[in-house]
Design a protein around this nucleic acid. Structure first.
Lengths: 161, 161
DNA sequence: CCACTAGTTCGATGTGTATCGTCAGATTCG
DNA sequence: CGAATCTGACGATACACATCGAACTAGTGG
């Protein structure tokens, strides 16, 4: 018992957590991957999370997830084992986590590759994440072109009426 | 017919929209308020949205919502009427929008005040939004103390084993 | 035509954030 | 004990983003 229970790191009371906080935490693809992995394996230490970013970045994301109330972490020796506060989240925001997890079906071994293709699918015409991945300068010019095209068809339509 | 149907602004195909895009769009409190209002009244032009930000900021948010696939907007004279792509969202991400809207019950007239108290409730101990509102320096020292306190009880716990 | 309204774009600003590498502290193991 | 491992704090960097006010565009009505 003592061996399986360690000290839990500070975490917010979910009753006090704003839904925007959770949404923001889960808007990041790496953090979503983390949550998916933890949901599938139950719990895992930092080192067991196979993600395409630096270890320090994983640590940063884990902290963000913990501070937003999505996961809980406990000390076990020199490891910090995290797990999703699934029950609490489901009580506080019924259906939210399920909807998000269902939106991106994935296999345990394909986490890293799953995130990459998801980003590839984003490049919809007016999709912001695609803009994020591209150089800012290029994106702005793209955004400028977008509305311009909008105005053109509008003019054409009204002419038709 | 023609009077009720205007030209629709470009919007992404929701089948191609990543859930992270939607999550990010709805992580912002102003944008959430917009979606709530639109959900309640059905549709509304920019000017009918009573929000505690500048008109240009509302425009910016509407654009973000539209480009992320959450709303659709059509030109009607010199107005741009927006509405939530509720059905499509429910098909693409079943339960997501409902969960988010349910997380923040509100009345149509209390949008602005509803957002403010939500921010007030956020100041949980390790809540990021609270950290954002407070001076960064103060928050870091608090965070530094947090883990330190965690380590102390950890030592105590292991001593007990 | 002009005046007015509705809404958007633009530029600037300040803040926030994801990422990385480095280093230090804590724990485990031989 | 020292070496190895695990993890997180720190500092730096580049980019993203919410916000505002001013200027501009498009549509409406007299």
């Amino acid at each position: 018992m003592g061996a399986s229970e360690g000290v839990r790191l500070p975490q917010p009371d979910l009753a006090r957590v704003d839904v925007g906080t959770v949404l923001h935490a889960l808007a990041d693809p790496v953090r979503r991957a983390i949550v998916r992995i933890l949901t599938q394996v139950g719990e895992a230490p930092c080192g067991a999370l196979d993600l395409p970013v630096a270890r320090s970045t994983v640590t940063h994301h884990l902290r963000t997830l913990r501070e937003s109330g999505v996961i809980e972490t406990e000390l076990r020796g020199n490891s910090r084992v995290s797990k999703v506060r699934r029950q609490e989240l489901d009580e506080r925001f019924p259906g939210l986590l399920a909807a998000i997890l269902d939106a991106e079906p994935a296999t345990a071994d394909d986490q890293a590759s799953t995130d990459d293709p998801a980003d590839t699918d984003d490049p919809a015409d007016t999709d912001d994440p695609a803009d994020t991945d591209d150089p800012a300068g290029t994106d702005r010019s793209a955004d400028t072109d977008g509305p311009a095209d909008t105005d053109d068809p509008a003019d054409t339509e009204e002419a038709g009426r």
